[in-house]
């Protein structure tokens, strides 16, 4: 399997990343998470993403390996950004490729669900009014991850 894992401050080029997954594939599925402009009725100025260097990359590789063990994938790309991101900017790209669509679609959904609960990233929200708050984990994310 063609595996690409990256944790970076820089943005990613989704078109180029998807094109890189086409070799040997019959279909490519992808998910891009972007920074919301509004959270709970408050205007967001920025999102700060912190991670655990070293562990993060290993955790993402574990997830990709688990997806590859479950679905016949020809490729898997996970790129997660860190640092300070503003509304509309990309946060994360998950893309998988396979011979047939079901495997890629399911593996992509699986990976984004697992990524929310099994990789050491933390988000803090900076609001336009000057306040800030760490994002609390959502029980429904645990439920979604456990459902697989």
């Amino acid at each position: 399997m063609n595996l690409r894992i990256a944790v970076q401050e820089a943005d990613f080029d989704a078109t180029a990343e998807l094109a890189a997954l086409s070799a040997g594939a019959g279909g490519i599925a992808s998910f891009i998470g972007v920074v919301r402009g509004n959270v709970g009725g408050k205007t967001l100025a920025a999102l700060r993403l912190e991670h655990y260097p070293g562990m993060t990359e290993k955790a993402l590789e574990h997830l990709a390996d688990a997806a590859a063990a479950r679905w016949a994938l020809t490729g898997c790309t996970i790129i997660h950004r860190i640092g300070r991101l503003t509304p509309g900017q990309n946060i994360v790209l998950v893309a998988t490729a396979s011979q047939h669509r079901a495997a890629a679609l399911e593996a992509t959904a699986y990976l984004i669900d697992q990524l929310k609960t099994a990789a050491p990233f933390w988000k803090a929200e900076e609001f336009a009014d000057g306040t800030q708050a760490w994002v609390a984990a959502r029980p429904e994310d645990d439920t979604a991850a456990a459902a697989w």
């Binding site: 998470g33 993403l49 991670h51 655990y52 070293g54 562990m55 290993k58 955790a59 997660h80 946060i91 994360v92 984004i112 990524l115 929310k116 609960t117 099994a118 990789a119 050491p120 990233f121 933390w122 988000k123 760490w134 994002v135 609390a136 984990a137 994310d141």
Partner: peptide
């Protein structure tokens, strides 16, 4: 917590681990 960069239960003995990290529930994605 994570012991030597693997998620771990708080009650699991860490043995000869070199690194332990404590943190809130993760919120990536």
């Amino acid at each position: 917590c994570a012991v030597d960069q693997e998620f771990c239960a708080l009650d699991a003995p860490f043995g000869a681990a070199a690194e332990i990290a404590f943190f809130p529930p993760v919120t990536g994605g």
